[in-house]
Design a protein around this nucleic acid. Structure first.
Ligand SMILES: [Zn+2]
Ligand SMILES: [Zn+2]
Ligand SMILES: [Zn+2]
Ligand SMILES: [Zn+2]
Lengths: 163, 163
DNA sequence: TCCGTTATGTTATAAAGTAACAATTGCTAT
DNA sequence: ATAGCAATTGTTACTTTATAACATAACGGA
């Protein structure tokens, strides 16, 4: 199980996996993945790049659903609490989490050019940071790592244009 | 030299050191640390907690100086470019850099309760992240690490109240 | 089915950041 | 000196992001 989290499935399959996983997790936890929350999660997973709250709101309105900013932000807060999405603070956007089973700090490679993100999972880095915090008697509650740069595609693109 | 960056001097001494260091660096680089930029840097260093752009603007206005948001943001942009300050994206605030001589990614412990921050300097973490990026053919330009939690003081405070 | 809780709708506003253009300042070359 | 150019700052207006406050609706257990 969870094979889809490891391989490289189609976006649609990935979205289906994420929604199913979310439903199971919320069931287990006794939290309610309502239609609205599920739809917001789906919108996030369906996008090739992370979306901002207002972009999500636009999609909801295209759905014909009524809504205002709080509608989206409340759904996002729920999804964040459940560890189903991450917020990329440097860009004010939200992206689906590929390992929602275990709460963890976000580790991201973010392409400055196309906006695509890649979620890392480096336990060594997480442990080192926890140790640093502990050595200073700091009670670490969450970690956020955002590496900005250029993804392989945009890199190639830029290099070909440079000639 | 730079002994103040290592020890634990008074806030005022720290501010003086930061301003002197900034002046030297800008001189060397041929960039202009104008009165406005110097004052913004001073405001940032003088505060026990990182300040947002509008809080800085309020201080400038208290100075009697005229100003609007762009005034502050432009000064902040300059200081960021020069590596004299960092921006904490999770809180939309700015804090002085303790090692402005070498450009580097930010590594911070941020207290959720009192807002105080502690800048780390863990080359291992930085190297690991660079390696992760490189292994994915990602061209890393900058890193930002923000660990949110509770500082020792607020931790003690909370524990004493818990009883 | 009643009631308390949780979730959503709605209006208004706060907070953060930027675009565009005008005025000023500082530097350089005559 | 001073004209001319570039960099900095002033100013107005606006966009984007996020939240407060209160009303309505849906859900779930007695
Ligand atoms: Zn994740
Ligand atoms: Zn890219
Ligand atoms: Zn620094
Ligand atoms: Zn604290």
């Amino acid at each position: 199980m969870d094979e889809l989290a490891q391989s490289d499935p189609s976006p649609a399959a990935e979205t289906r996996w994420a929604l199913a996983r979310a439903a199971t997790l919320c069931e287990q936890r006794g939290t309610r993945l309502t239609d609205l929350r599920k739809r917001v999660l789906e919108i996030i997973w369906s996008s090739p790049v992370p979306l901002g709250a207002y972009a999500i709101l636009d999609v909801l309105r295209d759905d014909g659903r009524q809504g205002a900013p709080p509608t989206v932000y409340r759904a996002l807060d729920f999804l964040l609490e459940q560890g189903l999405i991450h917020r990329l603070a440097t860009l004010n956007v939200f992206t689906g989490c590929r390992r929602p089973d275990s709460f963890h700090g976000g580790q991201f490679l973010i392409c400055r050019d196309c906006g695509q993100v890649d979620e890392l999972n480096n336990p060594t880095v997480e442990a080192l940071l926890r140790a640093e915090a502990a050595s200073r008697r700091f009670d670490a509650l969450s970690q956020m790592i955002e590496v900005l740069g250029r993804c392989p595609e945009c890199r190639r693109e830029a290099e070909s244009h440079a000639r």
